[in-house]
Design a protein around this nucleic acid. Structure first.
Lengths: 260, 260
DNA sequence: CTTGCCAACTCGTCTATACGAGTAGCCCTG
DNA sequence: CAGGGCTACTCGTATAGACGAGTTGGCAAG
């Protein structure tokens, strides 16, 4: 029962609260690799005994580490060091025309290449009223076609995206079908004469709302990356807005910029 | 003492834990604007009385909302709805040559334009051993010149950045001085014959480490954006790596991409 | 009127206890 | 040997109480 000499003692007279000291020691042990990814930390009861503190104090320490995204608790099993999931790299040229020739979507192609099992679900395509923000970005349209879908890698949801298109562009075209066909909606837009000129991407990071925790099955301590992409055609018109929420621990975004 | 009819009751027999139900009600009240930004929530004691639960239960609810970045507690004062701070937009062309002509740094110019009071502190310029990651990015250099600085807006730290440059480029030049002169180090690099060709930026989001919480004075529930920019010259050599950690609630990154 | 103290209110930390519920392994039963 | 159930262990939720420390405003003393 006595813990291997990994953890020291706490100083109750210290300025630093006891539960913070315990969290500090556990964090350091994790950082130094004394507890490895996926490994189980000592149980609450063990730490209670080791440090001579009450259970709430230990739980308080755990909740700090959870908030930092370092560990996660499993009911009935224990508290574990959170493994770093495989990361998906999004390159800034992922929508370049040359990637649009194939039949499969960028997500599927990339995932296959990385050896993961990709999946897309909760497809929903419907017409709806534009929110204020979407309306502004699309240039004052009232109603839009919304295409919603969720992406999964090896069964884990990693991204939830909604594309909004003006009805006068999308209605009655293949864009309004669940399957937009080879090359995705950007290929269809170009076929319809809306030649794409450039994209604008806005990136934010924040903690997820409860609904996002649910759809992305996020562990506590995992932020989301919120990306809003607007596609403009050669006439300067915004033809699509894509609102994407990604599990931050599953993504690295990568941009290549000219130094002009 | 009785609370204005904003909050309902909880169902102790429900599947959903009582402290979650309380958090839900408070969250909804905040979302609906019944508690406004900066406004004080009912005190722990008031909620204890209103819901007929123990204090730890109420504190548990608050800690959920804190983790979501919705509220923050001030010792001796109360729990407040966290105001959304003014946001700094970083455009992808912020390092274009045309922005480099003036004497002042991009940060100062932008902040002045936005009506904020900018500040730069904890300047440190020194030679040091490159970490494995930096060495790889710079093409296997051993030692580097590191330029560290922290940026503040209206007294609030928002960004902490470190630039790494190969010693054979930077040593003995103005780049190794605390003040790199008009146009910043990119201007100096070009004067030295290292004409910049393009930048590569990698973006991640995660919860901050304790040291980052300290230097950026982050409230709990605020993630950081971690941006690593590598600058390449026209010969394809990496001439600088800039590692930046930003308070996520203070930034929106914006990229303009060709549709090519 | 000003100063300084005190009281009341705030959240922060910690203890002790209790019960519930999920998990996993052992052992007994059939 | 297979199955089922018991038990011990895990974390989850909740109560009640205590003391500490930061903040604020009022009141009393100077």
């Amino acid at each position: 029962m006595s813990l291997p000499g990994l953890l020291g003692a706490v100083d109750p007279t210290s300025d630093r609260a006891v539960f913070r000291q315990i969290a500090d020691q556990l964090r350091e042990s994790i950082d130094r690799g004394r507890f490895k990814e996926g490994e189980k930390l000592p149980s609450e009861a063990e730490l209670v005994e080791h440090y001579g503190v009450s259970r709430m104090t230990v739980r308080n320490s755990f909740s700090i580490l959870q908030g930092e995204g370092l560990v996660h608790a499993e009911h009935g099993k224990g508290v574990f060091v959170r493994p770093r999931p495989p990361v998906r790299r999004l390159a800034s040229d992922r929508f370049a025309r040359r990637h649009r020739e194939q039949g499969k979507s960028a997500f599927i192609v990339e995932a296959d290449a990385a050896g993961s099992h990709p999946q897309v679900d909760s497809l929903e395509v419907k017409e709806e009223k534009a929110t204020q923000d979407i309306a502004t970005r699309l240039g004052s349209v009232r109603r839009v076609l919304a295409r919603r879908r969720r992406y999964l890698l090896d069964g884990r949801p990693v991204e939830f995206a909604t594309s909004y298109l003006p009805l006068d562009i999308a209605r009655g075209t293949q864009i309004a079908e669940p399957n937009p066909g080879p090359g995705g909606i950007y290929a269809r837009l170009e076929e319809l004469g809306h030649h794409l000129d450039h994209f604008e991407e806005e990136i934010r990071a924040r903690m997820p709302a409860p609904s996002e925790v649910k759809t992305l099955r996020l562990a506590s301590g995992v932020p989301v990356i919120h990306l809003i992409r607007t596609a403009y055609d050669t006439e300067g018109r915004a033809v699509e807005v894509c609102d994407t929420v990604m599990a931050a621990d599953a993504y690295v975004l990568s941009y290549q910029l000219p130094a002009t």
